[in-house]
Simulated assay, not measured.
Amino acid sequence: MKIPKAIQRGDSWRICVNFQNKRHTSTHDTEKEAKEWAARKILELKDASKSSKDEIPQHTYLEAIEYYLKNVTPKKKGARWETLRFRKLIRDNPQLVSKNLLDLKSFDFVKYRDSRIKYVTATTVSREMELLSAVLYCCIRELGWLSASPMTLVARPKLPPPRNRRAYDHEIAAILEACSYKEGAPVYTKSQEVGWSVLFALETAMRMGEITSMTWDNVYIDKMYVHLPDTKNGLTRNIPLSEKAEQLLLQIKGANSPRVLSIESDSLSTLFRKYRNRCEIDDLRFHDLRHEATTRMAQIIQNPADLSKITGHTDINILVNTYYNPTPTEVALRLRKGGVK
């Protein structure tokens, strides 16, 4: 059965699946999302027509989660985070996970969503629901323990606008002082490595894990770039080096081997928060340095496609709408510099 054509209506896309003389329709923000929904729906409807409840083996949701943890989670980059999240879900929701998969209803997940949203952010709830849903689809596609997902029609919480926190010069200066880091001076301690990492992130827009995992055999100072063989989205990436980024690498060269830094991501994250709090800086995260760096780069590299090659974003819209956050004053100065009358 072919995936039907999505029809655009205004700002949304509507798609209809006809199966056994029944129509199933859905509306989405993009054509891609509409087609993905249709593909999932066709699989669900086909499986449901082939199987009856009595033909499917009886398994609990907990069994399914444990299978997923053992066979799927370890293959992911965020395996540690996902494992911790699943363990907490199991611990905090015994009634849900103890249910037989065939007895799960949409309301079980509506109840979970509405209860959880009282204590954590909508983003957190949405991520947890994605995990719960992934387990169910594993049961459908790989195990044959389900014919359809009870979460298909359960709405996710409405997400807040993208974070647009900028890092200001006085905040950076305060954190560097708290780290006992001085530009150009030798880097001996992990605290000083934190300061070094802050400046390198601002120059390269690299993620924390990418910075801490850098090795010297992937640093090409003579060719003015750093090669990242394994990034968050699974793609390789080359980071061009500004003059300051090159100076930072030369400053620390020889301090550690084979890695550029000795500090691990967890320690860097912990120490960054420690010095940020000591400086009484409100709501600044290390990842915000990536936002700041991207916004600064966009003043120079104005082609989003070129900028995405540096930051590693495969979706230009996310790059523009989430990571590029110029102030009105910065835009005004660019207009004046460009001679706009």
Rank of each mutant, 00 (worst) to 15 (best):
S257H: 15
C16H: 07
Y61E: 15
L101G: 06
S265E: 13
Y181T: 00
E55W: 00
T204G: 04
A122D: 07
I172M: 05
D266W: 14
T294R: 05
C139N: 01
A79I: 09
D114C: 06
F200H: 14
K76P: 09
D47A: 05
I221A: 15
N256L: 04
E33S: 13
M214R: 10
V125W: 06
L84K: 12
C179G: 07
K53E: 01
I318A: 03
T212W: 03
G10D: 06
L132D: 07
L228Q: 13
G312H: 06
S106H: 14
R127D: 09
W216A: 07
T204P: 01
K118E: 11
N277A: 12
D54Y: 03
Q95K: 10
R334W: 11
V135R: 02
Q58Y: 04
M214F: 04
E330P: 08
L136I: 09
G144Q: 11
D217W: 02
K244H: 11
K99A: 02
Y181V: 01
Q247R: 08
I90G: 13
S49I: 07
P150S: 09
Y181Q: 05
T270G: 13
R23H: 11
K70L: 04
R334H: 15
G254T: 15
E55A: 08
R163E: 07
P326V: 03
N218Y: 09
I263T: 06
F107H: 12
M214A: 14
E128W: 06
T204R: 04
D315G: 01
P240I: 08
T189P: 09
P240R: 12
Q8E: 11
A293K: 02
Y112K: 09
K46S: 08
L335Y: 14
T123R: 11
R285N: 11
Y220N: 15
R80Q: 10
H227R: 15
Q20A: 11
N321G: 00
K2W: 00
R23N: 11
H287T: 03
